[in-house]
């Protein structure tokens, strides 16, 4: 356990000293929130909320996508190319320590990103923080399940990228595609039906919806496509992605690059 924390500590040190990662993973969502929030200002949705308030939920969910999925799917292939993973494998370090270290670092980053985004949402866009314990409970499980799913899929995805250089080119479009179709930048209910059905296969849509159930008033629930928050189904889909992600990890993860066999 001490080793896992030490590994997490090393991962975080590495992360905070890498300017690109810091800007891309932590500051980019905040910048997007400010830019889009300004563009959406004054637009009101049915159900008594502004588009900016709707949008901040999507940005918080995107923060989980960035710290779990994008961060790992890009940084692990780079580490593999640099021979870092192979060097870990040459030590008696148990394999799980490496993943535990990544999980520790993803968790810390996700907490920081969420606090930053919530702070902006509350101060700039007048988002009301929930007062009931039940809402915070929903926030907790949606965040945890969503983040676990993103982390596992990120690790699984790292095995698919041929090289560290190729990884961002594969990962970034996927993240953007999901953001556009899952109701981050646009209202999900206003998207074409086929796009909704596509997005409903992936975790981001359900993370956004779960967060909306926490931060938007009950009166907005009827504006959702299903006419409710669908929390049960959200838990089911996110849980399924956690299980699927774990299986994919076991199938695809590689410690060495293709070049060295």
């Amino acid at each position: 356990m001490r080793l896992a924390l030490a590994q997490g500590n090393i991962e975080l040190k590495q992360f905070f000293r890498t300017k690109e990662a810091l800007v891309f993973t932590l500051l980019f969502p905040v910048m997007l929130m400010i830019v889009f929030g300004a563009i959406f200002s004054g637009i009101e949705l049915d159900g008594g909320i502004t588009l900016a308030q709707y949008f901040v939920n999507g940005m918080i969910a995107s923060g989980f996508l960035a710290t779990g999925f994008q961060n790992l799917a890009i940084s692990i292939p780079i580490e593999r190319d640099r021979g870092v993973l192979k060097r870990y494998r040459s030590t008696p370090m148990p394999k799980w320590i490496y993943f535990a270290g990544k999980s520790v670092s993803v968790t810390v980053l996700a907490v920081i990103a969420t606090i930053l985004l919530l702070a902006v949402a509350v101060t700039v866009y007048g988002l009301d923080l929930p007062t009931s314990a039940a809402k915070w409970g929903t926030f907790a499980w949606v965040s945890v399940l969503g983040l676990i799913a993103c982390t596992l899929v990120g690790i699984a995805f790292s095995g698919l990228a041929k090289s560290g250089r190729a990884a961002p080119a594969v990962v970034t479009p996927i993240a953007l595609l999901l953001q556009f179709t899952s109701g981050v930048f646009f209202e999900y209910g206003a998207l074409p039906q086929w796009m909704q059905q596509f997005a409903a296969l992936f975790p981001l849509k359900w993370m956004c919806q779960g967060l909306r159930s926490v931060f938007l008033p009950e009166s907005f629930a009827v504006q959702e496509v299903a006419g409710s928050w669908e929390l049960g189904r959200t838990a089911l889909v996110l849980g399924a992605w956690c299980v699927g992600g774990l299986i994919l990890c076991a199938l695809t993860f590689r410690w060495t690059s293709k070049r060295d066999g």
């Binding site: 590495q14 021979g83 870092v84 192979k86």
Partner: peptide
Amino acid sequence: GIVLQGTGEFDELTVGEVVRHFARFY
């Protein structure tokens, strides 16, 4: 002890941090 072919790139970590970290595994 294994010294692999090619160099390992630990990038933003310092020499001391990397060696101390690997020492923890043994």
